[in-house]
C-alpha cells in the first residue's frame, strides 16, 4: 500500500516540521508546503485516480485523517501565535495611568450666591416666592414705611449712603417688604424671601463690609402667629443645618417688628458643645425676626386688625463665612481665584 505509507510518512514529516515552527511566517510557509494547492498532500492525492474503487475510500479516509491532523496542528499554532501577538501588542500599548487626566475647566458659583441658592431652594420648597427690589431706594421704603420716621434715634445718617435727601443705597432688604405688600394690594397670603445687596457706611475690616448681602423673609396672612415664626425658622434651620439643629429666640428690638426676637441656632461648628466659633456658648446668632409691626402693615396697605405677619432677616455673608470657615469678609469681594476655586464642588 504505497499510497497509505506515503501519506503516513508525510504526516510524520509534517508533524515534525510543525513542532519546530518559530514564527507565524514559517507556519504559513509550512501550511502552503503541506496543505496548499500545490502542496505535498495535494501532490500525494493526485495519485488517487489510479486506485481501485475498493482502495479509494480507505485511502480517502487516511488522507482526511492526515489533513485533519496537520490542519489541527496548524490551527493550534496559529492560535498560539495570535495570542502571543496580541499580548505583545497590548504590552506595547500600555500607558502610564498615573499621569494626570486632561483637565476639564471647572468653574464655580460665588459662595454668596451658593448660599442664597440653597436658602432659596429651602424656602421655595416651603411655598415661598423670591421678591426683589431696587438697590437704590427711596428713604420712604428704606426707613419711613418701616416705622423709622426721620429723626428716629435708630436711624443714623452716618450709617447710610445717601444720593439725595430722599434717595439712598438701601441699608437693608426690608424695603422689599413694603413694596411687596403694596403690590399685593392688601390681599393675603404673602410668603416671600428677598435676598440682595445692601449698603452701610462702615469701614471695611475682617467682619465689616460697606456692601454685603441680606435676605429678608415675610409672611402676611390672616392669623399668622409668633409660634408660626418659630416653627418656620426651626424648619428652615433644620433643612439648612441638619435635623438636630435647634433654635433659641431672645427678645430684641427692631423698629419694624413687635415683638422682636434675635434667633440663635445650635452652633454649626461644634453642634452645641461650645467652641471658639460660638464663643463657647453653643449658640450662634444668625437671624433677626419678629411679628410685623402694625404700622408697617398699615404702610403696606394691610389692616393690622385683620392681617398679621412675621418677618425675618439674615446676613448671607455671615452664613457663608460660618459655613465655609471664611475668616475675613473681604475675601468675598476681592475675587481672588485662589479663593473662588475652592468652591467648585457641591
Amino acid at each position: 500500500m504505497l499510497m497509505k505509507e506515503r501519506l503516513e510518512e508525510l504526516k510524520e514529516i509534517a508533524v515534525s516540521a510543525l513542532s519546530k515552527v518559530l514564527d507565524p511566517q514559517e507556519l504559513n510557509d509550512l501550511r502552503v508546503k503541506y496543505l496548499g494547492k500545490k502542496g505535498e498532500l495535494t501532490e500525494v492525492l493526485r495519485g488517487m485516480g489510479s486506485l481501485s474503487a475498493e482502495e479509494r475510500p480507505v485511502i480517502g479516509q487516511v488522507a482526511n485523517e492526515v489533513r485533519g491532523a496537520i490542519e489541527g496542528l496548524i490551527t493550534n499554532l496559529q492560535e498560539k501565535f495570535r495570542a502571543e501577538e496580541t499580548a505583545q501588542r497590548l504590552a506595547a500599548e500600555t500607558i502610564d495611568v498615573t499621569l494626570p487626566g486632561r483637565p476639564m475647566n471647572a468653574g464655580a458659583v460665588h459662595p454668596l450666591n451658593k448660599v442664597i441658592q440653597d436658602i432659596e431652594d429651602i424656602f421655595i420648597g416651603m411655598g415661598y416666592e423670591i421678591a426683589e427690589g431696587p438697590e437704590v431706594e427711596n428713604d420712604f421704603y428704606n426707613f419711613e414705611a418701616l416705622n423709622l420716621p426721620k429723626n428716629h434715634p435708630a436711624r443714623d445718617m452716618q450709617d447710610s449712603f445717601y444720593v439725595t435727601d430722599e434717595i439712598l443705597m438701601r441699608t437693608q432688604t426690608s424695603p422689599v417688604q413694603i413694596r411687596t405688600m403694596q403690590a399685593k394690594k392688601g390681599q393675603g397670603p404673602i410668603k416671600i424671601i428677598c435676598p440682595g445687596k445692601v449698603f452701610r457706611r462702615d469701614d471695611d475690616d475682617a467682619t465689616h463690609s460697606f456692601q454685603f448681602y441680606q435676605m429678608e423673609g415675610l409672611v402676611v396672612d390672616k392669623n399668622i402667629r409668633m409660634s408660626d415664626l418659630k416653627g418656620t425658622l426651626l424648619q428652615f434651620v433644620q433643612q439648612m443645618y441638619g435635623q438636630d439643629t435647634q433654635i433659641r429666640l431672645r427678645p430684641s428690638f427692631f423698629p419694624f417688628t413687635e415683638p422682636s426676637a434675635e434667633v440663635d441656632v445650635t452652633c454649626v461648628t461644634c453642634g452645641g458643645d461650645g467652641c471658639r466659633i460660638c464663643k463657647h456658648t453653643g449658640w450662634l446668632e444668625i437671624l433677626g425676626s419678629g411679628m410685623v409691626h402694625p404700622e408697617v402693615l398699615r404702610m403696606g396697605g394691610y389692616d393690622p386688625e385683620e392681617y398679621s405677619g412675621f418677618a425675618f432677616g439674615l446676613g448671607i455673608d455671615r452664613i457663608a463665612m460660618l459655613r465655609y470657615g471664611i475668616d475675613d469678609i473681604r475675601h468675598l469681594y476681592t475675587n481672588d481665584l485662589r479663593f473662588l476655586k475652592q468652591f467648585s464642588r457641591i
Binding site: 432659596e120 424656602f123 421655595i124 397670603p189 409672611v219 409668633m226 409660634s227 418656620t232 427678645p251 415683638p259
Partner: peptide, 24 residues
C-alpha cells in the same frame, strides 16, 4: 411674651391657604 418667656411660646406651622412658591 418676653416675661412669659419666648422659649415657652409653642412651635407651630402656618395654617391657611398653601402657596406654590417658585422662581419667576
Amino acid at each position: 411674651a418676653r416675661l412669659y418667656g419666648y422659649d415657652n411660646i409653642p412651635t407651630t406651622l402656618i395654617e391657611g391657604a398653601t402657596t406654590p412658591g417658585g422662581y419667576t
